[in-house]
Design a protein around this nucleic acid. Structure first.
Lengths: 99, 99
DNA sequence: TTATATTTGACAATATTTGACAAGCCAAAT
DNA sequence: ATTTGGCTTGTCAAATATTGTCAAATATAA
């Protein structure tokens, strides 16, 4: 399970909602929501936004988890150099802020 | 231009090598190397390794730049939440070290 | 100009991702 | 013991993305 999936499942269960109900709202198959919660499939950005609305969650928070999962899926293949690469990417980010 | 492309071009020019020569060694079209240097195309991991060998560069260093570019391409679409997402991804990384 | 190096855009071939569907699993209810 | 309800799993075709090449365009240098 990934960051986003865990959070979505937690929110959904707290509100006693069924996968089926979330799926209906997003107009997708139940299986897809199941896969998103278990981290087997990635949600699209729009899906994350829709889920946030439906589950009354903070949209930015969910999008942040979603992005974190995307970063994770990139670095997971290269754990030995991941940290250093993140440092560089972070520096890039800051440099671009200044332009 | 991205981190890897800039470094490759720098190394290649310092050694007075042509795109054509690098391309020959990697057995790809010259245009592809040009695109990799300019960040228009991503190199595969194997290509990075081959380039490092040919240019007598540190393989891990180039792979780190390559990974940084991949991270960057993920976060660039969401600059507002990128920093926070990186923090989470980094925490994930550390947690997995401990298991 | 001429020759050589690099860049560009379009393209086909491949690979990956997407979401639906159907079948399966499991626990609880009947 | 069977049915029901919720969730999971595997597979598929369609859509989308990525790959490397080719030929043409553009630079760079002599």
């Amino acid at each position: 399970m990934n960051n986003l999936g865990r959070k979505i499942r937690e929110l959904r269960e707290k509100q006693n909602l069924l996968l089926r109900q979330v799926a209906a709202r997003l107009e997708v198959d139940t299986a897809l929501i199941s896969k998103i919660e278990r981290g087997e499939r990635n949600a699209s950005k729009q899906q994350v936004i829709d889920i946030a609305n439906f589950l009354k969650a903070n949209e930015e928070e969910l999008l942040t988890l979603w992005l974190a999962d995307k970063i994770k899926s990139v670095i997971v293949e290269e754990p030995a150099i991941a940290y250093q690469a993140m440092k560089i990417a972070n520096k890039n980010l800051k440099n671009e802020e200044r332009h």
